[in-house]
Simulated scan of single mutants.
Amino acid sequence: MKQVLLVIIMCMTINGYSQAEFSSKFKVIPPIDIGIKTKKATPLKVAPRDIIAPDIFKKPEYKLPSTNFKIGDPDPISMIQTNDFINPGDEVRDKMNKSIDKSLVNNGLKEDTSYLNVKDLNFGVIRTKSKTLMIRVRDYGAIDGDLIKATIIRNYKSTILANNLYLDTNFKDIKIELQEGLNYLELEALNRGALGGNTGAFYIYDAEGTMLMSDLWNNFDTGVKSKFTFIKE
């Protein structure tokens, strides 16, 4: 019993001491002022400015960036195949072939296809009293297989006088019987020779053996004609 009383008395004593220690008379001690003061930063005042784009028309010192591109210049990026990687040997070969071809043409061993004649050639009008005419034809260039066809036209009717006539160094004769009035003769190139266009020379004689005309056709394409008009008086 004595021990219980002792405990109660100790608890009452501790409670009273705590209330006295944290009573309303307790005051907070303020911090010591050490004299260091801070100032607020003042923002820098800048006068407002309007941003104006330069006028490149009034002030030529302002220029647009140059791209060094001109109208007509090739596009630096292209999907078209070019000859940048061509074999140099091909160029040399082509030049040699052109040189050889030119030499053959100059020596009469090859006919020049660059001047191929694709239009009919009219040799004009021949007037005669002869009843017949003799046309003598041959190849005047290299013998390369030229073929021709001879046709006479009278009163709108055509008659073939010679077909697939082979031209070589020897003369081939074509005889024509003339009717009163107009007689038309056509010598048509049936092919191009192996060395170029169809070439030929012709000589026209009357019944007395008098030569009335001589000339030639040169580098005719297939189907091109030499045309003549005979008037029997």
Score class of each variant (00 low, 15 high):
residue 47 A to Q: 14
residue 48 P to K: 13
residue 50 D to L: 02
residue 52 I to C: 03
residue 54 P to G: 01
residue 54 P to C: 03
residue 54 P to E: 02
residue 55 D to F: 02
residue 57 F to E: 06
residue 57 F to I: 07
residue 57 F to Y: 08
residue 58 K to Y: 06
residue 60 P to Y: 06
residue 62 Y to P: 02
residue 62 Y to A: 01
residue 66 S to Q: 07
residue 67 T to A: 08
residue 68 N to Y: 07
residue 68 N to R: 09
residue 68 N to S: 10
residue 70 K to W: 09
residue 70 K to Y: 10
residue 72 G to W: 07
residue 72 G to E: 06
residue 74 P to I: 00
residue 74 P to K: 06
residue 75 D to M: 12
residue 76 P to F: 01
residue 76 P to I: 00
residue 76 P to L: 03
residue 77 I to T: 05
residue 77 I to Q: 05
residue 78 S to T: 05
residue 78 S to G: 02
residue 80 I to M: 01
residue 80 I to R: 00
residue 82 T to M: 00
residue 84 D to P: 02
residue 86 I to N: 03
residue 86 I to V: 06
residue 88 P to Y: 02
residue 88 P to Q: 03
residue 89 G to N: 12
residue 90 D to S: 08
residue 91 E to Q: 06
residue 91 E to C: 03
residue 91 E to S: 07
residue 92 V to N: 11
residue 93 R to L: 14
residue 93 R to E: 10
residue 95 K to V: 06
residue 98 K to T: 12
residue 98 K to F: 12
residue 99 S to D: 15
residue 100 I to T: 14
residue 101 D to N: 14
residue 104 L to H: 04
residue 105 V to T: 14
residue 105 V to L: 10
residue 106 N to L: 15
residue 106 N to W: 13
residue 106 N to H: 14
residue 107 N to P: 09
residue 107 N to L: 15
residue 107 N to W: 08
residue 108 G to K: 12
residue 108 G to H: 13
residue 109 L to H: 11
residue 110 K to S: 03
residue 110 K to A: 03
residue 112 D to Y: 09
residue 113 T to P: 08
residue 115 Y to D: 12
residue 117 N to W: 05
residue 117 N to I: 04
residue 118 V to S: 11
residue 119 K to D: 15
residue 123 F to P: 01
residue 123 F to E: 01
residue 127 R to F: 14
residue 127 R to V: 12
residue 128 T to D: 00
residue 129 K to A: 13
residue 132 T to L: 10
residue 132 T to C: 06
residue 133 L to C: 02
residue 133 L to Y: 00
residue 134 M to K: 14
residue 134 M to E: 08
residue 134 M to Q: 10
residue 137 V to I: 14
residue 137 V to P: 00
residue 138 R to V: 03
residue 139 D to N: 09
residue 139 D to W: 01
residue 140 Y to N: 09
residue 141 G to T: 05
residue 143 I to C: 06
residue 144 D to H: 11
residue 145 G to N: 05
residue 145 G to T: 04
residue 146 D to C: 07
residue 147 L to W: 05
residue 150 A to D: 05
residue 153 I to E: 11
residue 155 N to I: 13
residue 155 N to P: 07
residue 156 Y to Q: 14
residue 164 N to A: 07
residue 164 N to M: 11
residue 165 L to P: 01
residue 166 Y to G: 09
residue 166 Y to R: 13
residue 166 Y to C: 06
residue 166 Y to P: 03
residue 167 L to P: 00
residue 168 D to C: 07
residue 168 D to S: 11
residue 170 N to M: 09
residue 170 N to K: 15
residue 171 F to W: 14
residue 172 K to N: 11
residue 174 I to S: 02
residue 175 K to M: 04
residue 175 K to F: 04
residue 175 K to V: 02
residue 176 I to F: 01
residue 178 L to F: 03
residue 179 Q to A: 14
residue 179 Q to F: 10
residue 181 G to N: 05
residue 182 L to F: 08
residue 183 N to D: 10
residue 184 Y to L: 12
residue 186 E to F: 07
residue 187 L to W: 00
residue 188 E to Q: 15
residue 189 A to F: 00
